[in-house]
Design a binder for these strands. Structure first.
Lengths: 191, 191
DNA sequence: GTCTATACAGTGATAGAC
DNA sequence: GTCTATCACTGTATAGAC
């Protein structure tokens, strides 16, 4: 009896390991240990080694956000799409228990290795949210700033929730960000 | 001709290396390379190795914030202390070029190694800022939430600024956070 | 206090049997 | 597709000369 995986399954498993340990901390031995897959299997799926693993994870994260966050924000009813975004974000980050892999990669020199994937994760998010805000009648420049602030607030909430080991920090922050974004004037919440 | 350092100097040098590379990424060889100090010197200053280096850095960070941020917030004129905080933060993080070591440590399993130092960095900051807000006439519960939001916003701004490689994200965020904190009603900026 | 030499476990990666 | 064996290299850490 032995288990045989699809590449997509492996990507999901190793994503969680990279999230918890970071790029440098996620060593092959810990990956084999937690996935049950030998190095042979790992290199079968990812001939490029760790770098290809991380690229695959980033691509899968990008695909998830594209489907469940960016795309609705760009085309669906703006109020509904924004409300759905807060729900998706809360689910995705397990109400503050999970951190953002892309944000974590951005902080050390891992950023330089995956610069374009990291940049596009955030720019796409901000731009999609800005579009939704503009469709809801918000001034374009203010919408951009408010979108930036919302995305940045999520990242900060993840950092602080994990630092204090207190999920409630994340929930509170999400509630405030959502409320403020929904109740801003056409000129934004900037002041 | 040879250079002889004080431990405090070494702490400052390696702090920058840990900030840029993270705990796992900051290998002894890169530390020797960038400080010019051999492993012998390093272990002379830090017999406990990497873990003691990181502890010393965290202690030095804590001391800096205690002197230049927390202490003024607790006892000085609240408006002045808060204004000074934004200036200190902007200087300390080099207007978004530098990241927060404590926030970075919080994201991966490095957090578990330095849990109490990481927690106290953030709780002290939030509590000191809350005290200043209370002294300026703010309701206590709202002051706590607003302080939490400000600190979290700084962390998020650092993440996003580095992810986009754009310092202006940090400056903009700091301006908005400062403005909103200063112009909130006694019941806070929560809504 | 600094250096060099060294130990040895752990790293990412490859080859080849099954 | 999975495993084991093995590679060269880098990791942290120690000992001892100067």
């Amino acid at each position: 009896m032995r288990t045989v995986y699809e590449r997509a399954d492996v990507v999901q498993m190793i994503a969680e390991i990279f999230r918890e340990l970071g790029y440098e901390g996620a060593s092959l031995s810990r990956i084999t240990e937690r996935t049950g897959l030998g190095k042979g299997s790992l290199y079968h799926f990812f001939p490029g080694g760790k770098e290809e693993m991380a690229s695959a994870i980033l691509a899968s994260v990008a695909a998830w956000f594209e489907n469940f966050v960016y795309e609705p924000l760009r085309h669906d009813d703006s109020e509904q799409a924004i409300a759905a975004m807060w729900k998706s974000v809360d689910d995705y980050f397990c109400s503050g228990k999970r951190i953002c892999l892309v944000g974590a990669f951005a902080l050390d020199d891992t950023r330089d290795r995956f610069a374009s994937a990291i940049r596009s994760y955030f720019t796409q998010w901000i731009d999609a949210l800005r579009d939704a805000l503009v469709r809801s009648g918000r001034d374009r420049d203010c919408a951009m700033l408010d979108a930036e602030e919302a995305v940045l607030g999520i990242q900060g909430a993840l950092v602080l929730a994990r630092a204090l080991n207190d999920k409630s920090v994340f929930s509170r922050a999400l509630d405030r960000l959502a409320y403020r974004l929904a109740n801003a004037t056409p000129n934004g919440l900037t002041r």
